[in-house]
Design a protein around this nucleic acid. Structure first.
Length: 255
DNA sequence: ATGGTAGAAACTCTA
């Protein structure tokens, strides 16, 4: 079973690339972020023609998450329970016995921003919820855009990024708290190339200059981590015409 | 040198 995540930065614009990608990589489950679509505008028929089902929780202009899957989803949640949030950033579902949680963590803007405070509160609520969720679902995966580079090797220039949003100590500490729940960063289960990133700013030719960050992740419960045989970033879509600023990440599970 | 691009929307916000 292959699970994957991709921040598409507008599903309307990126739909052809998403359909190409699933035809090439055949994920069984694909978590999408930044769909930027109201639910009524979700391209359900295109997804269905490609052989996938879809669940989604979106809004106009910003945010929005979706899960495409070969098999049906059940036990769907569209928010972190007991956390007031007008922004559509979470989608949870059970598919093929796996609890899939698709997340679009707030960006935070900059460390002095109100949005940064919201990001840290959001992460605290997510962590508290996942602690409970892990007790119910031993086979659990959290996949999405975390907007956090966990370690220095996940940043093209750690000196430049030191203390900046996406790499600040409180954000990395929040990520470590997720890991402390027992979740495993699937990407680091395996040897990986140097300078492995998932996001490159549209500005300053960042992709060509290899100025990226690894901020999109697949976290696995211990039981799923034991069944994980591979995890990789596919940077090819980032080199395409009119790309998302993020690349997809995928993990293979012996399920 | 404090910039730049992209998307959605609408003369600006978010990333």
């Amino acid at each position: 079973m292959r699970i994957a995540t991709w921040n598409v930065n507008s599903l309307k614009v990126r739909l052809p690339q998403v359909l190409d990608w699933i035809a090439k990589q055949h994920p069984d489950v694909l978590c999408l972020q930044e769909t930027k679509l109201e639910d009524g505008k979700f391209p359900g028929e295109d997804v269905s023609r490609a052989g996938y089902r879809a669940i989604f929780s979106g809004q106009k202009t910003y945010n929005g998450v979706a899960i495409l899957s070969r098999e049906a989803c059940s036990e769907v949640l569209t928010a972190v329970p007991h956390f007031e949030d007008g922004q559509k950033r979470v989608l949870a579902a059970t598919v093929c016995g796996i609890r899939m949680i698709c997340v679009y963590v707030p960006n935070g803007e900059h460390v002095e921003s109100e949005k940064y405070r919201y990001k840290l509160e959001w992460l605290a609520a997510l962590t508290a919820w996942l602690e409970r969720e892990l007790k119910h679902y031993p086979r659990l995966a959290v996949a999405g855009d975390f907007n956090i580079a966990p370690e220095a090797r996940d940043v093209h220039d750690p000196k430049v990024w030191d203390g900046q949003v996406l790499f600040s100590a409180p954000e990395r500490d929040a990520f470590r708290k997720l890991i402390a729940l027992g979740l495993v960063d699937a990407f680091r289960l395996f040897d990986q190339p140097e300078k492995s990133f998932t996001w490159w700013d549209y500005r300053l030719n960042a992709f060509r200059r290899k100025m990226g960050l690894r901020i999109d992740h697949i976290l696995l419960s211990p039981q799923l981590a034991a069944l994980c045989s591979a995890c990789a970033i596919d940077a090819a879509p980032r080199a395409a015409e009119r790309p998302s600023d993020h690349a997809p990440v995928m993990a293979d599970l012996a399920v």
